[in-house]
């Protein structure tokens, strides 16, 4: 199997699905000639032509809306948000048109809205946001947040093949940072299946996206101190694999939830509530959360480091949890 970066794995999924299914096409800003702001779709237009790699005006509502219309007419569009921050400009189309169509009309809207999210790269409040929880709250949208290259490929394939609207959060900090073996050719991972990425018995960290890497670093450090920590990557917020999380909570009796998005009304609160409702009697300690401070993601490195979670913050919280 080839070693691919997270970015290459996503591009591989798009390319493979576009070769397999001519209904799949891409639309977004600067994606054809320029190859996308992160060069994820570099040279795509040469293989697939400019109709299937469609450069669009800076109009996120039109991009998502046109994707919905094309999906209603038999296509499987993948719309790129140049930065996931700009999904706010297409929010209405996703939550009011795409998310309600199956419920109202009984037909699917097979679109994927994808793009780079997340901070830690010295961007600014408008190029760093983790807004996945907004869509988890929308009812009718699937929400995918991969942490690894192989998962990114498999989940992208599944998202394109899904008959429902999917928002796909790529973490820009992971794009070229991590590399791993990624299966060649068609590779799909079902949406709604969490992955136990590290087994343990003294406590569990439930995470997704960049926070999975913070959790793994913390678990590795804790293993040197004699603690065995389980790490669960939920991979998709909607559908949420409640059973895998509950099974781990029942096994380790201590749960910390980590995500890069801000704390209040973040998806961690939902996970905590599910554990509290269904596994309360198994818990030996309060459920804890590590998340961004409730602030816009700031620009200066000192401020950004202070506001965002990282491996040290997860480690410190986990130490407290294990000794509670």
């Amino acid at each position: 199997m080839p070693q691919l970066t997270y970015l290459e794995a996503i591009a591989d999924a798009l390319r493979t699905e576009m070769r397999r299914d001519e209904r799949v096409f891409l639309l977004g800003e600067d994606i054809a000639t320029y190859g996308g702001a992160f060069k994820l779709t570099k040279n795509f237009h040469e293989e697939f032509g400019r109709k299937r790699v469609l450069d669009c005006p800076i109009s996120e509502s039109a991009i998502v809306g046109a994707a919905i219309g094309a999906a209603l007419n038999g296509m499987r569009p993948v719309a790129e948000m140049q930065f996931m921050d700009f999904v706010t400009c297409g929010f209405n189309q996703i939550v009011n048109v795409a998310a309600t169509t199956a419920y109202r009309w009984g037909i699917g809207v097979p679109i994927v809205v994808r793009g780079p999210s997340g901070g830690g790269v010295g961007a600014n409040p408008f190029h760093s946001r983790n807004s996945e929880a907004w869509f988890a709250h929308a009812s009718g949208v699937k929400v995918v947040c991969p942490a690894f290259p192989a998962d990114a490929k498999g989940l992208m394939t599944a998202s394109i093949r899904d008959n429902n609207p999917v928002v796909f959060y790529e973490h820009k900090g992971l794009y070229r940072k991590i590399k791993e073996e990624v299966p060649e050719g068609e590779y799909s991972i079902p949406l709604g299946k969490a992955n136990v990425v590290r087994e343990g018995k003294n406590g569990t960290i439930v995470a997704y996206g960049s926070a999975v890497h913070f959790a793994l670093a913390a678990a590795e450090e804790l293993s040197k101190e004699g603690a065995s920590v389980e790490v669960i990557d939920i991979r998709t917020l909607v559908p949420f694999d409640q059973e895998t999380v509950l099974a781990s909570a029942r096994k380790t009796n201590r749960v910390l939830i980590a995500h890069e998005a801000s704390l209040t009304a973040g998806f961690g609160g939902e996970i905590a509530a599910r554990i509290a409702e269904h596994a309360f009697e198994y818990l030996d300690a309060p459920i804890m959360r590590v998340a961004a401070y409730d602030a816009p993601t700031p620009f200066a490195p000192t401020l950004e480091k202070a506001v965002l979670p990282n491996a040290e913050k997860v480690l410190s919280a986990m130490r407290k949890l294990l000794t509670y």
Partner: peptide
């Protein structure tokens, strides 16, 4: 935009 996307397809 949805009506436009329909005929884009």
């Amino acid at each position: 935009p949805v009506a436009a996307g329909f005929v884009l397809a």
